[in-house]
Design a protein around this nucleic acid. Structure first.
Lengths: 151, 151
DNA sequence: CTTATTGCAAAAGTTTTGCACTATA
DNA sequence: TATAGTGCAAAACTTTTGCAATAAG
């Protein structure tokens, strides 16, 4: 159901904004395309990108991720542990998947749901607040950790 | 409707856990009690606590906030900007208020709702994930910023 | 007297920035 | 040849930690 973006589409989107798809930026994009449905930390992206562009610098990765986020090509996630995580955007579907973060083992799974649409409408009319995005995270214990008595 | 904790109750809670309510810790608690319904950054708490305990160190503030969070006396919030924010806990009511974060002026307002209870039940049964907490943030533009064409 | 707590400074960790160099249109 | 982009190192920033000094039971 996901409308996955292709490498070519991303290249076009960059060039439409007068940004070049340099080898370094391409390396970052390739890493993200190779790891859909995973939330990569910047350091992980950096290390993986080195396989495509060995001389890439960490600063370039940060700068590239900032660009990709600004163009809505990727989404940034914050688990509250002081590190940003990134994932390829999934257009509108993206809006309605939430994160289940396990306090036992740190695993992150997803839950698809559109219940929040109702809530957003409610907020928009009650508070006159124009919502453009949201972030919903659930903290708890996954099945495995519950069995291991960690929850 | 909020069941506000008193200074004495907090003292009892600390002592029940073999923790002393030192002047420094008392200063932090006073700051938090004086700023209910506000999400203070650690640095702000540090500066405000200095009025009660001039010699308090930043490390002590961090250590105190960690203790208070562990005892569920305060709640930690993460707006995704790399800084933690804190607020006095409001027991069970706390669970069902969400944050509206304005991308124009940075103002944070709250929205009370219990729709998420349904969603939590759904997740618990579908994913066998035992939820203990959640965080829901909406990003958008407040009424004022919409009028100022910032949204 | 024994343990908890503190302040300070240093360290750790992520992210940003300055700048000279390089690649590209 | 202008300009965009890069790598490196340094800086910025929040948070944590080691440790000697202090306070409290």
């Amino acid at each position: 159901m996901d409308k996955q973006q292709s490498f070519e589409e991303i290249q076009e989107r960059l060039e439409a904004n007068d940004l070049r798809l340099t080898p370094q930026r391409a390396a970052v994009v390739k890493v993200l395309l190779d790891h859909t449905h995973t939330h990569l930390r910047t350091e992980e992206i950096f290390l993986l990108a080195k396989e495509f562009a060995p001389d890439i610098g960490l600063a370039t990765v940060y700068r590239t991720l900032e660009i990709l986020e600004r163009l809505n090509i990727i989404n940034r996630f914050d688990y509250g542990d002081g590190q940003s995580r990134y994932e390829m955007g999934r257009d509108t579907e993206e809006h309605y998947h939430h994160h289940l973060i396990c306090l036992g083992c740190g695993a992150v799974s997803e839950f698809e749901d559109d219940l929040l649409e109702m809530l957003e409408d409610k907020i928009a009319s009650k508070c006159q607040f124009k919502i453009v995005d949201h972030s919903l995270r659930f903290f708890g214990y996954c099945k495995k950790c519950q069995m291991n008595n960690r929850g």
